[in-house]
Design a protein around this nucleic acid. Sequence first.
DNA 1: TCTTATGATTAATC
DNA 2: GATTAATCATAAGA
Length: 373
Amino acid sequence: MDEPGRLLQARGAGGLPPPPPSEPGEPRKRDLGEILQQIMAITDQSLDEAQAKKHALNCHRMKPALFTVLCEIKEKTGLSIRSSQEEEPVDPQLMRLDNMLLAEGVAGPEKGGGSAAAAAAAAASGGVSPDNSIEHSDYRNKLAQIRQIYHAELEKYEQACNEFTTHVMNLLREQSRTRPVAPKEIERMVGIIHRKFSSIQMQLKQSTCEAVMILRSRFLDARRKRRNFSKQATEVLNEYFYSHLSNPYPSEEAKEELAKKCGITISQVSNWFGNKRIRYKKNIGSGGSFNLSGSGDVFLGLPGLNGDTYPPAQVESLRHSMGQGPYGEGLAAGQLYSPRDMRANGGWQEAATPSSAMSPTEGPGSVHSDTSN
DNA sequence: TCTTATGATTAATC
DNA sequence: GATTAATCATAAGA
């Protein structure tokens, strides 16, 4: 081990005699062997000694050739295997996160993302509340905050990644003076660093997605709060209900039409009719709130045109609307709803229901669609 | 604060 | 899948 070292030292650090003309064969092999020995020996020496040898080695005429050979060997062995493993497909999880962030308007260009998402959320929940613009702006603001934090963090990560990459590259370049470092190795190192940072980025994306989901669910929960329909919407629904009292089951088309008119969803229309039917029936059944305050009404107990008895509720509605409004006519001409029948069989269809009737308590334009339980 | 009205949800039924 | 009936949760009014 010492011998080659001494040989090199004998030639002098920096003061090497002109190298013998490079010949193929034995002398060259010996030369390479010597250099290798010296490199190995450096680890066993003190820093000062090593430093001196390093310099000597750096100036050795064979160094570039040796490094090239060593780089080639390195590439052919470990690196080639590793590099083939490194070509991983794009992580589907990362893709999902990216897509979600894009869809939510957190990543990508700012396109009023918050409002778009808020609008989508509103559409999904189906509610048209009077203060939804406030909720939208609230959602927008929160989303903008998330977006801001996300981008700031992302920028920080990218900056740190770049700094670290540059640092490592410089280090490797520096090291390449004393050990064989192939460009591919540097590339691989950069790749490793980028992967490490992208895994951190993935965490950032994940937590951003979570934040958006929480915000979204909160927003939707808030929207799920009961909001009374607008006066006009209730009017439209009541109008339909009382004008189809004999069969208050709107078809899909009718529901669609009503939903459009009222600015609510079809399922809200269904809900409304479900509630309306049951509550109307209940109240008719109990008679309670529909009872006329003034007894001895001329209509009370009168047989209907179809032979049914006018219920107090119907009488009340008659009082309100006979001869006026869109349904007065129908009421006057048509049959009247019989609560007795409904009580008897509990079903709407089976009950002798009129084709047209008024609200028991109020006109079709009434804001209050039904009465309390 | 209490009561009532009303939109939504849920389980059962058809 | 639509509807009923019961119930919940909350807005609105007294």
